[in-house]
Write a protein that binds this DNA or RNA. Structure first.
Lengths: 235, 235
DNA sequence: GCATACCAACTTGTATACAAACAGGTGTGC
DNA sequence: GCACACCTGTTTGTATACAAGTTGGTATGC
C-alpha cells in the first residue's frame, strides 16, 4: 500500500531545479543576474510549467527572487545572511552534541563517525573535493546522531545553503589536516561525555572554517565577475 | 465568516494556499484524507495551476503529500514529529535568550515584550484566542530580539507548523494566568542578565505548555474523527 | 535638446489542452 | 465460482494559449 515507486527520473521539474541550482553554485548564473522563465525553458528544452515549479522551490530556499511581472533575479550575495546561517548551524550542532552526551550508549551514527575520523594519519584522505563532502557529512551525522529528525532536516537545509561558500574551505592542505585533527578531537570529547569541552571545540572548529571561507569567498566572487567580463556593480 | 478585506492580492495561488492551510488546521481536511487537484480547483473556483503551486508549498512544509499520479493526501498526524519540533523550538529559543543576555543594552524588541507582559493583573487579557496569538508573538519576538533574522525565520516556520496543535493550550484560565506569570518572570531574568535562570524558566515554560497540549490534542483528534464519522485508523 | 506621452514587446499569472500512467471494475475463459 | 486480461475513467505531469501589467524605446511637442 505504501510501497509506491518514486520515479525521480521522470520528473522534469526536479531535473531543472537541480540544473539551475548548480548553475547558481558554479556562478554560471551570477548573483544579481536577471532572467525570464522563457529563457530558462528554452535553454532546458522544456515548457514554462516545470521551470516555474523549479523556480518557486529555489525562491523558497532563497536562491532567487521574482519581480512582479518583471522577471527573476539570482539573489545577490549577502554576507550577513551567510554569517547568520553559520550562527544557526553552530547553535544546532552544539545542541546536538549536548543531546548526544546525554545518551548513555553510543548511537550507531556516532560509532560510524569515529570509524571515519579517528584514524591514523596514513589513512586520511587528501582530496579537497572529497573532504569537503565528508566534512559536510561529519556535521550532518553529528546532528543525526542526536536522534531528532526534524532538527537534522533543518540542519541539512542550512548545509545546502552554505555549500555554495563552504566548499571553498578545503583548498589548502593545512585546513585538511586541521579538519581531521579537530573532528577526531571533538569525537573523543563526546565519547568521554565531556559535553562542555566538546561544544567549545566544535564552536572553535566551525569558527575557524568560517574565517577561512570569509576570506576566500570575496576573492572567488571577484574572480568570477572578472572572468564573466562583467563589471563590478557597486552602486 | 471573517470579514477580511479582500486585498486584491492578485495572487490566487496565495489565497488558495492560505485557504487550504486553514482547512487543514480546522480539520475540514482531516489527517489522512485524500483529494485531487481538480477537486480543490473546483471548490476554489480556480484552475489547477495555482492550486498546484499552493499544494507544492504545503508539501514542502510537510502538511500534505503527493502520491505519484494517484492524488494528494493530508499528512497523517505524527506526534513524534510535533515533539521534535517542540525540541528544536526550545533549542532555538534558549540560544536566543543566551544571545540577548550577551547584549549590553536592551533591544527595542525586548522593551516591547516587557511592556506587553510585565503588567499588573488588572491589565491582563483573558480571551483564549487572543492570548494564543500573543503567546506565539512572545516567543517569536524573543528570538527576533536576538538579532539573527535567519534564526527568526526558521523559528517562525516552526511556530507555523506547531500552531495546529499549540492553540489548544489556552482553553482554560489557569493556563492563561500561568502564561503571564511565566513570561514576565522570564523577561525579568533576562533584564537582569541572569542567563542560566532565564533559560531554565523558558525550558520549563515550554515544557508545561507542551504537556498541556499533548493531552488535549489526543482528545481533539478523537472528537474530530467521531464527528466526521470516520473510524480510527491505527495501523 | 529635453521632457513627456504613447506604444509595442516582453514578463509573469492563470486557464486550458494534451500525454502518460495508475486503479478499479467488468467481462471472459475455464 | 474464480482468475486474469482488458478497458475506461481518473490522476498527476507537461505544454500551450490567453490575460494583465511592466518596461523601455521612440516619436512628438515645446
Amino acid at each position: 500500500m505504501k510501497a509506491h515507486k518514486e520515479k525521480k527520473s521522470s520528473n522534469l521539474a526536479d531535473r531543472i531545479y537541480q540544473q539551475l541550482k548548480s548553475d547558481i553554485f558554479d556562478f554560471r548564473l551570477m548573483p544579481g543576474d536577471r532572467f525570464s522563465e522563457n529563457e530558462i525553458a528554452e535553454r532546458m528544452g522544456a515548457s514554462r510549467t516545470p521551470v516555474r515549479e523549479a523556480l518557486f522551490r529555489l525562491q523558497r530556499e532563497s536562491y532567487v527572487d521574482v519581480l512582479f511581472r518583471s522577471g527573476w533575479q539570482v539573489k545577490p550575495f549577502d554576507f550577513d545572511y551567510f554569517e547568520e546561517l553559520y550562527d544557526v548551524r553552530t547553535i544546532l550542532e552544539c545542541a546536538a552534541v549536548r543531546k548526544i552526551c546525554e545518551q548513555e550508549n553510543n548511537s550507531p551514527k556516532l560509532d560510524d563517525l569515529i570509524r571515519i575520523w579517528c584514524v591514523p594519519e596514513s589513512e586520511r584522505l587528501e582530496d579537497g573535493n572529497t573532504l569537503s563532502r565528508l566534512d559536510e557529512r561529519f556535521h550532518e551525522m553529528l546532528v543525526e546522531a542526536a536522534g531528532n529528525t526534524e532538527m537534522a532536516r533543518i540542519h541539512h537545509d542550512l548545509t545546502e545553503r552554505l555549500r555554495i561558500i563552504r566548499r571553498l574551505d578545503f583548498t589548502k592542505p593545512p585546513r585538511i589536516d586541521a579538519t581531521y585533527q579537530e573532528h577526531s578531537s571533538i569525537l573523543e570529547a563526546i565519547q568521554h561525555r565531556r559535553c562542555e569541552q566538546a561544544q567549545i571545540q566544535l564552536r572553535a572548529h566551525i569558527e575557524s572554517s568560517r574565517n577561512e571561507v570569509r576570506k576566500i569567498t570575496l576573492h572567488m566572487l571577484h574572480e568570477a565577475r572578472m572572468h564573466s567580463g562583467k563589471a563590478d556593480n557597486d552602486d
